[in-house]
């Protein structure tokens, strides 16, 4: 442990001197990575080729054979089954949840880091206690609240509780990001006579960007994956999100596996596009947000 501390003491990061040359060969990790690659690639290959198979071929061919007569029917059929609506709903829910969480969490984290009062301390403890409380435990009361607000079967009904249960982790991560803004920076601004609104705008907001990116991704993935809240809080076909839609295809297709796999593939494409677009941001954001 003391060796560890010694290393850390001498290792104040100097960004200019990033590692260009990593440790030479790392054979075990390399082999492990290769195996993992196969583990990741095979199922994905499976859903793609199965999505292009006809129903007959699904029965006759092996799971990993290339489709002999690839067909687009499964994909085109999806458009008649409300797929674009589901996708749109999921994207709206995800965007709404991320926006709401960030808008609530960043000011709160700012207050938590810069305001030592008892009231703020207490609120922080509440969020900390809520960190691991699972949403499904309180689904019934949530349901009652949503109906009281007359939001049942709207997308807002999904966004509101999803955001609420993402708040604790968002606040914790953002708090640790903000902690690392050196005190001197705050003080310099105060000397210039800036009030907290200006400090927030010109200092907190720009410097917390990496944290915001990683929280955004984490919360966004949660919302995108959300299953229980949409299940219980929406009903109509027009409000159905992707995850429920996928699950529903299982019965709509009359157990048509290729159709189902085509739906899985299509449901992934928008996120894949987002990912390819924002990959760089993501990596640097993650490093800053969770690496501390």
């Amino acid at each position: 442990m003391s060796a560890d501390l010694a290393v850390r003491a001498t290792a104040k990061p100097s960004p200019a001197r990033r590692a260009r040359r990593r440790r030479g060969r790392n054979l075990p990790a390399g082999i492990l990575s290769a195996i993992w690659l196969v583990i990741v690639a095979v199922p994905i290959y499976y859903i793609v080729v199965t999505g292009f198979r006809s129903q007959d071929a699904y029965v006759e061919q092996g799971p990993l054979d290339l489709p002999s007569n690839p067909t687009l029917d499964n994909f085109t059929a999806l458009f008649g089954l409300g797929f674009p609506t589901y996708l749109g709903n999921s994207l709206l829910v995800t965007a709404g949840t991320v926006a709401l969480v960030l808008a609530l969490a960043l000011p709160a984290a700012y207050a938590i880091v810069r305001n030592p009062s008892r009231k703020v301390k207490l609120s922080f403890s509440v969020f900390l206690l809520g960190l691991a409380v699972p949403a499904q435990a309180v689904i019934v009361p949530i349901y009652l609240i949503i109906t009281r607000l007359e939001l049942y079967d709207t997308l807002r009904a999904v966004i509101l509780p999803t955001a609420a249960f993402s708040l604790p982790i968002a606040i914790v991560v953002l708090t640790s990001t903000l902690r690392d803004i050196p005190n001197e920076l705050y003080e310099a601004m105060t000397v210039d006579g800036a009030d907290s609104r200006r400090v927030f705008r010109t200092l907190v907001l720009p410097l917390s960007r990496p944290g915001l990116v990683s929280v955004g991704i984490f919360v966004g993935l949660n919302a995108w994956n959300g299953f229980l809240f949409p299940l219980v809080l929406t009903q109509s076909d027009e409000r159905r999100v992707m995850t429920l839609g996928l699950w529903n295809f299982q019965s709509q297709f009359g157990t048509n596996v290729p159709g189902l796999m085509a739906a899985v593939v299509l449901s992934t494409l928008p996120v894949l596009a987002l990912y390819l677009f924002g990959r760089r941001h993501l990596l640097s954001g993650l490093a800053a947000g969770f690496g501390k």
Binding site: V140, Y143, L144, T147, R148, Y152, L231, V232, L233, Q235, L244, W247, N248, S251
Partner: peptide
């Protein structure tokens, strides 16, 4: 009996319990 139907069902009944059946 899919749990989807059950969940929706629970939800529906709860609506009426909550709103006195006049939504």
């Amino acid at each position: 009996r899919t749990f989807l139907s059950m969940a929706t069902a629970a939800a529906l009944t709860a609506t009426v319990t909550a709103c006195g059946g006049s939504s």
